[in-house]
Amino acid sequence: MNGLLGQIFQLREGIKSKRVSSYDRSGGNADYVRIAAGETIDIADIAGAGIIKHIWITLSSEDAFMRRNAIIRMYWDGEEHPSVEAPLGDFFGQGWGEEYSFTSLPLAAAPLKGKALNCYFPMPFNNGARISIENQSDIDIRAFFYYVDYEEHLSIPVSMGRFHAWWNREATTSVHPPEGEMEWVGRNQTDANNYLFAEIEGKGHFVGINYYVDSPGPMWYGEGDDMWMIDGEGWPGSLHGTGTEDFFNTAWCPNELYAHPYFGCARVPDKLGWMGRTHVYRFLLEDPIYFDKSLRASIEHGHDNNLALDICTVSYWYQTEPHKIFPPLPVRASRANMPEISIKDVHTWRHEWRKAMGGSGTLWGNEKG
């Protein structure tokens, strides 16, 4: 029997269920730890072999941006460099340091109002596992609650890849001014100027991405083709997409909330058009991207990379070790949000347009130059 419950009845030998949690060791109800400003703590340090099956986290802090200021890292088999490194909220499916509900099969931000962070990606290890939280804020996390549920095994098969996740960010540049999909109809035959969301060395398979885009203008932020260069191949690669919404399994420039176990739109802007913050996601659980030596995965920011956007991503994959060491995580100040575009900003654009059109008091705003 196949499917999520296909083997639930199968009895297994040599496996023990274990948990590491923040429960009050005195038997009281203070079931949390405090993480001081600038402090790093291990929430799990597990010996031997096993598979982490579930992580649950919630926290309380006076820092409203703690989901971007706190960093989660994971280490397998005694490695020096983390296989997972990302801001806490971004990893679990919340961008921009915000709190909002998010639903998918491997990750979720659950009630109350997205405060409960859950991960169901299985994470095998053969010689120890360590999960740390670093508070890079100037303010304490006054209460940090967590579960790390795992299976203890005698050993893990060599064929089990190690779980990885990498956060990246780029304020993209319009490669061919003037900016905008309507003004530029060039032909892009390279991935050189794309937004890069994975650059992996080793054997493995790519299983998902959270994509957070902040658009300073009202026009559609997409039309970006996804491009996958497997094992060092050149353009156009083994997999070449047809547009941002197509890769994320939607269509026709959507701007509505939608939650499927494998893909969806977890946050959409409530402004003019697509102006503001959009969070889309896709998990390739039925159709992973396999590679034997390397994977370079990217997406255009607008057709032919002609849009200025603020893009952050967390990519998720499994691979052999050792992995390519991640670039240094941007410092806290470099992870801050871009300023929000306001109604006054839009009016200023209109004012400048009116001046360019001669300044007549009868100009409505859609006259052609």
Rank of each mutant, 00 (worst) to 15 (best):
I230Q: 01
S155H: 10
A64T: 14
Y120T: 10
E233K: 02
Y290F: 14
D45G: 05
K203I: 01
V148H: 06
S21L: 09
A333G: 05
G27K: 14
D149P: 04
I41M: 08
Y195G: 06
S298I: 14
G38P: 01
W364R: 12
I200T: 02
S60A: 15
H54R: 10
Y150G: 04
L154F: 07
W166F: 12
D310W: 10
R282M: 03
S360N: 09
Y258K: 09
S137P: 03
W167D: 04
R142I: 14
S334D: 15
A143I: 14
E233L: 02
H153I: 11
S294N: 12
T244D: 08
I57C: 06
P236L: 00
N366L: 06
P339N: 00
Y258Q: 10
K344F: 07
L112W: 11
Y195K: 06
D31W: 10
W349M: 06
R187S: 13
H176I: 04
T40I: 03
C253A: 15
R335C: 00
L59S: 11
S22Y: 09
N305E: 09
M229V: 06
D225F: 05
I52L: 09
P254V: 00
Y262L: 15
S159K: 11
E99G: 11
A116Y: 07
A116I: 08
F197Y: 10
F92Q: 04
Y195C: 08
L154I: 13
I343L: 10
G232V: 07
I341Y: 00
I156V: 15
V331L: 13
I289P: 04
G50H: 00
S360R: 13
N118E: 12
P330M: 07
K344Y: 03
I52Q: 01
A192R: 15
T278L: 04
I41N: 01
L154K: 15
E223K: 09
E85F: 02
A109K: 07
D45L: 08
V20Q: 06
N69C: 10
A308V: 13
I200R: 08
P216F: 04
G237R: 02
G369W: 15
P339T: 00
E233V: 02
R12K: 13
T173D: 11
G232C: 03
C253K: 12
W96T: 08
I43G: 00
E170N: 12
P288L: 14
T244S: 06
V314I: 06
L329H: 05
E62V: 09
S22D: 01
F206Y: 12
L112N: 14
P322F: 09
N135D: 02
W166Q: 10
W167S: 04
P261S: 08
T173C: 01
S60K: 10
Q189P: 00
N255T: 12
G361Q: 06
G6L: 01
E62G: 13
A171V: 11
G186K: 04
I341V: 15
G264Q: 02
C312S: 15
T58H: 07
G232T: 08
